[in-house]
């Protein structure tokens, strides 16, 4: 049975092993490389996407579990936030304004995790942010991530 996914608004019928993690479907089968491989055990969050709007670590999510789901990756974060063609979402714009990324590798996952948090809880406390954003960044962009979140929550 092929697995069907809607990724960034486009429907795909996929003939892959049901246990293949969604990460590798997204990266190797669909060629969307914005979603990153970091640890393979859901410990770092680099692979976070939205599955039906929920932040999901795809490196441990078998594709069969998300059969039929609507998936949004970093490539469509702006569009899914209502930004026009070639524009950024307010959150991405805050990331640019605060010059958050360093190496940038973890930032796709960070943005997906934070955008899911804000969709559910538009005015999170610092404790809410601490509890929800457990993604790992090795460059140490944490202070600026918090500042960028505050840029959109205090607006």
């Amino acid at each position: 049975m092929p697995i069907s996914l809607t990724v960034n608004g486009k429907r795909h019928e996929l003939d892959v092993e049901p246990e293949m993690p969604l990460l590798w479907v997204i990266r190797d089968e669909l060629g969307l490389t914005g979603t990153k491989f970091g640890c393979g055990i859901a410990a770092c969050g680099a692979c976070t996407v939205h599955v039906d709007g929920v932040a999901t670590r795809t490196c441990v999510t078998p594709v069969e579990v998300v059969d039929g789901a609507e998936i949004t990756t970093i490539e469509a974060l702006a569009a899914s936030s209502g930004a026009g063609e070639g524009e950024l979402s307010a959150l991405q714009a805050a990331w640019v304004a605060k010059q958050v990324p360093q190496c940038g590798y973890c930032q796709s996952g960070m943005l997906m995790a934070v955008s899911a948090l804000l969709a559910e809880n538009p005015q999170p406390t610092d404790e809410d942010i601490d509890a929800a954003i457990t993604n790992v960044c090795r460059c140490g962009t944490y202070p600026r991530i918090r500042a960028a979140i505050r840029e959109v929550t205090s607006a």
Binding site: L32, T33, T35, K36, T73, E75, Q92, G104, Q107
Partner: peptide
């Protein structure tokens, strides 16, 4: 503003792991 930031917030930045030459195997 740093030149490298825009590509790092929309998934378009390409790291070594993102190389996809035609016919790529892993």
């Amino acid at each position: 503003p740093r030149f490298d930031i825009p590509g790092k917030v929309d998934g378009s930045a390409k790291y070594g792991i993102d190389a996809r030459p035609e016919g790529l195997l892993y």
